[in-house]
Computed example of a mutant assay.
Amino acid sequence: MILRRRTRKIRLGNVEIGGDSPISVQSMTNTDTGDVAATVAQIHRLEAAGCEIIRVAVPDLEAAAAIRTIRDSISIPLIADIHFDWRLAVASMENGAHGIRINPGNLGGEEKVELVVTAARRHQIPVRVGVNSGSISRELLKQYGYPTPENSDALIESALQNVRLLEKYGLYDIKISIKSADVLTTINGYTNLSAVTDYPLHLGVTEAGGLIAGTVKSSVALGNLLSKGIGDTFRISLTRDPVEEVRVGFELLRSLKIRERGPELISCPTCGRTRIDLFSLAEKVERYVQTMEKPLKVAVMGCVVNGPGEAREADIGVAGGNGVGIIFKKGKIWKKVAEEDLLDVFMKELAEMEIEHR
Rank of each mutant, 00 (worst) to 15 (best):
Ile2Gly: 10
Arg4Gly: 00
Arg6Pro: 00
Arg8Ser: 05
Arg8Val: 05
Lys9His: 05
Ile10Ser: 02
Gly13Asp: 06
Asn14Trp: 01
Val15Gln: 03
Val15Leu: 04
Ile17Asn: 06
Gly19Met: 01
Asp20Phe: 06
Pro22Ile: 09
Ile23Ser: 01
Ser24Met: 07
Ser27Pro: 06
Thr29Gly: 03
Asn30Thr: 03
Thr31Asn: 00
Asp32Ala: 07
Thr33Met: 12
Val36Cys: 03
Thr39Tyr: 02
Gln42Arg: 06
Gln42Pro: 02
Gln42Glu: 08
Glu47Phe: 02
Gly50Ser: 06
Cys51Leu: 05
Glu52Met: 04
Ile53Lys: 04
Arg55Ala: 12
Val56Ser: 07
Ala57His: 00
Asp60Glu: 15
Glu62Tyr: 03
Ala66Gln: 09
Ser75Glu: 12
Ser75Asn: 07
Pro77Leu: 09
Val90Gln: 12
Ser92Arg: 04
His98Val: 11
Leu107Met: 06
Glu110Val: 10
Val113Met: 12
Val116Gly: 03
Ile125Pro: 01
Pro126Met: 02
Pro126His: 00
Val129Pro: 01
Val129Tyr: 03
Ser133Asn: 08
Gly134Asn: 13
Gly134Thr: 13
Ser137Glu: 14
Leu140Arg: 11
Leu141Glu: 06
Leu141Asn: 12
Tyr146Val: 10
Thr148Trp: 04
Pro149Arg: 14
Leu155Arg: 10
Ile156Gln: 05
Ala159Val: 10
Asn162Gly: 13
Ile174Gly: 05
Ile178Met: 13
Ile178Asn: 07
Leu184Asn: 15
Thr186Leu: 12
Ser194Phe: 03
Val196Pro: 08
Tyr199Thr: 03
Leu201Met: 01
Leu201Ala: 04
Ala208Thr: 15
Gly209Phe: 11
Gly210Leu: 10
Gly210Asn: 14
Leu211Val: 08
Ala213Glu: 11
Gly214Cys: 01
Ser218Phe: 06
Ser219His: 04
Ser227Asn: 14
Lys228Ile: 06
Gly229Arg: 11
Ile230His: 05
Ile236Gln: 07
Ser237Cys: 10
Arg240Thr: 13
Glu245His: 09
Ser255Asn: 08
Arg259Asn: 01
Leu265Pro: 03
Ser267Phe: 03
Leu281Glu: 04
Glu286Thr: 02
Glu286Tyr: 06
Thr291Asp: 00
Glu293Gly: 01
Lys297Ser: 02
Val298Ala: 09
Val304Ile: 12
Pro308Glu: 10
Ala311Phe: 10
Glu313Trp: 04
Ala314Pro: 05
Gly320Trp: 12
Gly320Cys: 14
Gly321His: 13
Val324Arg: 09
Ile327Gln: 15
Lys332Asp: 15
Ile333Trp: 04
Trp334Pro: 04
Lys335Asn: 12
Val337Ala: 08
Ala338Gln: 15
Glu340Ser: 13
Glu340Ile: 08
Asp341Lys: 15
Leu342Gly: 08
Leu343Ser: 09
Val345Thr: 15
Phe346Arg: 15
Met347Glu: 14
Met347Ile: 15
Glu349Lys: 09
Ala351Gly: 12
Glu352Ser: 13
Glu354Trp: 12
Ile355Asp: 09
Arg358Ile: 05
